[in-house]
Design a protein around this nucleic acid. Structure first.
Length: 705
DNA sequence: GTAGGGTTAG
């Protein structure tokens, strides 16, 4: 082969693929084959077209050459030309290799349904698929996530007696694992007469992707013990991902040792997985050490270190790495953008997030659905619902993640009707909802008191979409019934659950007991919660508030004592506000800020103004008294301090954005409403659960949170 | 002349 290539290069003066025009000088089929093989590296549509026309002119259109051409067109990015050539070559459809090439490439181009149609067309005209065809069609089932199709293909493989083919069985394992059926994947794997490295890697990766990390590690240990072949970078990087998933540093370090022993540490994929494992186990420094030790770095290396920063909440450092990677000429990819956006979403850094948006627009990354979904979430979590919606609408094609992101943003901002309408639009578009999609939908129903609709969607999830409800869904349903005052029904609903209810489910019921003043049920529910999560101060506070509201002050005191005995402390309220890219933090009763005097003066002024408009302090929200006055303690809440500071330093008319670590209190909520009207300001408070957008004296949550 | 496995979005 090498010799033949040498001859061609000499004869055609072939250099870097420029010698194509001398094709007519070739005389043997062998020459052409070699040239075509070499051309696969070029991936240039123009050159492939030139070869194609030369072949037509010189009568070189043998079936084998046509098949190579089909492949070449696909490899240089034009599935369109592949299809065109196929359709215009009548005798091509008699050949199984031609069909297989076509099916493989359709699958590679993420056109699984066209691939399946081709497969069926081929069988209709009486062409028998071989093992290559089967391994080409299985990835199409994976792309389309069609387990049912995969099962049918499996049956055909069985019929053709090809089940024991190692290559095919491995592809089946991969297909079942990707479609979420580890039971079937394992069954095929167990029945394989021979397993090679890729077979083992496929089962390890299968466990990994289905979050069965222990099983992934188990399979890795097993193959390490009994295989006659050596493991490769895929095996090692996969087992490291499993360690990362389990935060299993001990075994991870052992794996690191054997990687070093085998001399695999220089491989960039292995290095990336190692770094990722250390980051997820909290050893950022070890990851950074690997990052700075020479060797290759690719875009993933950068992404892993950036994600590591995000994981450690080192957001500024994450930005520094992004700038550094750009400086070194590594173009950030969708994962880089997604991780940073995720970071900015969690800290509510709107300005940083907007900068990333600008960059994504310039670099063409807005075509990527991951980036778009992260942007929608970022804007949503930073309080800019309208920007989130704009990004969503400016994107033409949405996948289910994108739809879910936008539905969740509406829900968090109190626009429950919009959330439900968007969900309905998604269904009309033919997008299939997933497990997580139903969480904001059910929550939207609960926040608008749509009990019937909530049940409609819940049943539709189970019966139409075959999704097993999880704890998140059950908690929403309990919330839905509880908010509507149907406490007994909610209790019975919990009892009918096929899975063990957790604290989120009981917590929803306790909240409802508080809202509707059911002391007896409240006590019973709280007792269960104290057992489930004795360390959560929220439950004690809720029960104590129920007692206080019913005048049972002794019992309320008893609960506070219980907190002391159990060593539970109420988390201190804490609020943040960004002013010209600097974040200011306020704790409850905070007097540490340099403008403390002005802040408290502003609050005093605000209090007088709103009192004249009928405000009465809601002292039931006062959990401790300051200077003997419960009312006074209310005016030291962190969100009020942040509000006063915002009113002082932000230009009139500009919105005030506050973030809080706990649920916002009822009294603060009332004060914010008044303030938005008096100062004609938009005030956005993001608390632990949701957004409150105050405008002209009312809140987007319609006082229902 | 045709095939397989590996970090990121809700």
């Amino acid at each position: 082969m090498k010799f033949a290539l040498f001859v061609i290069r000499r004869r055609s003066n072939y250099q870097n693929g420029v010698g194509v025009r001398k094709l007519h000088e070739f005389t043997s089929v062998l020459d052409l084959k070699v040239l075509l093989k070499d051309m696969t590296k070029l991936k240039n549509l123009k050159q492939v077209s030139q070869i194609h026309s030369q072949m037509v002119m010189t009568n070189y259109m043998s079936l084998a050459n046509i098949n190579t051409l089909l492949l070449l067109y696909a490899k240089c990015g034009s599935i369109h030309h592949t299809l065109l050539l196929f359709e215009t070559t009548p005798h091509a459809s008699n050949n199984v290799v031609t069909w297989t090439t076509l099916i493989t490439q359709l699958s590679h181009f993420n056109k699984p349904f066209q691939a399946l149609t081709c497969f069926n067309r081929m069988r209709t005209i009486g062409i028998y698929p071989n093992q290559f065809t089967f391994s080409a069609i299985l990835p199409a089932c994976v792309h389309a996530l069609l387990l049912s199709q995969g099962l049918q293909i499996h049956a055909l493989i069985h019929k053709h007696g090809l089940e024991s083919d190692t290559f095919l069985a491995t592809t089946l394992v991969h297909m079942y694992a990707k479609c979420g059926s580890m039971y079937l994947a394992e069954k095929v794997f167990e029945e394989m007469p021979h397993r090679n490295l890729v077979s083992w890697n496929s089962i390890i990766v299968g466990f990994l992707k289905n979050n069965l990390f222990h099983r992934a590690i188990g399979a890795f240990r097993e193959v390490l013990r009994k295989a006659s072949f050596g493991l490769d970078q895929v095996s090692f990087s996969s087992v490291l991902s499993a360690c990362a998933g389990l935060v299993e540093l001990g075994f991870g370090k052992q794996v690191h040792g054997s990687i070093v022993k085998r001399g695999l540490v220089g491989l960039v994929y292995v290095k990336n997985s190692l770094m990722d494992m250390y980051c997820k186990c909290g050893l950022f420094e070890d990851a950074a050490k690997l990052f700075y030790t020479g060797g290759n770095k690719d875009v993933v290396t950068w992404n892993v270190i950036i994600m590591g920063c995000v994981h450690m909440q080192k957001f500024e450092l994450a930005c520094t790495y992004l700038q550094a990677m750009i400086k070194e000429g590594v173009e950030p990819d969708e994962a880089s953008y997604s991780s940073l956006l995720h970071a900015f979403a969690s800290i509510g850094a709107l300005t940083h997030g907007t900068l990333i948006h600008g960059r994504a627009l310039k670099t063409g990354h807005m075509r990527n659905t991951c980036v778009v979904s992260s942007l929608v979430t970022m804007y949503g979590k930073c309080g800019s619902m309208f920007d989130a919606y704009r990004v969503f609408r400016e994107t033409k094609v949405h996948n289910v993640v994108c739809w879910t992101a936008m539905i969740a943003v509406f829900q968090q901002h109190g626009c429950a009707n919009e959330a439900i309408e968007l969900f309905e639009e998604m269904l009309r578009e033919g997008v299939v909802p997933e497990y997580i999609t139903f969480v904001p939908v059910l929550s939207a129903c609960s926040h608008t008191g749509k009990v019937d609709d909530g049940f409609k969607y819940f049943n539709c999830m189970v019966n139409v979409h075959d999704i097993k409800p999880g704890l998140e869904h059950y908690a929403c349903m309990v919330d839905l019934l509880g908010r509507g005052g149907r406490l007994e029904e909610a209790w019975r609903f919990i009892e009918s659950m096929p899975i063990e209810p957790d604290s989120s489910v009981w917590g929803a019921l306790l909240g409802a007991c508080g809202k509707h003043g059911n002391v007896e049920m409240g006590i019973e529910v709280a007792e269960r919660l104290f057992k489930l999560e004795p360390e959560n101060p929220g439950n004690y506070v809720l029960l104590s508030n129920i007692y206080t509201r019913h005048g049972m002050l002794e019992e309320a005191d008893e609960i506070r004592r219980l907190m002391g005995i159990n060593g539970v402390r109420k988390e201190t309220g804490c609020s943040w506000i960004d002013v010209r890219n600097v974040t200011f933090v306020f704790n409850a009763n905070d007097r540490s800020h340099s403008r403390t005097r002005e802040i408290y003066e502003m609050l005093q002024k605000l209090k007088e103004l709103i009192k004249s408009r009928g405000y009465v302090a809601e002292t039931q929200f006062a959990t401790n008294s300051v200077e003997g006055s419960e009312e006074q303690s209310l005016w030291c809440h962190s969100e009020k301090l942040a509000l006063a500071f915002g009113l002082l330093v932000l230009p009139p008319g500009s919105p005030i954005r506050i973030k809080k670590n706990l649920r916002t209190c009822g009294d603060c909520h009332t004060v914010m409403k008044f303030a938005s009207e008096i100062f004609q300001r938009e005030i956005i408070v993001r608390d632990i659960n949701r957004f409150h957008r105050f405008l002209n004296g009312s809140c987007s949550c319609r006082d229902y949170w």
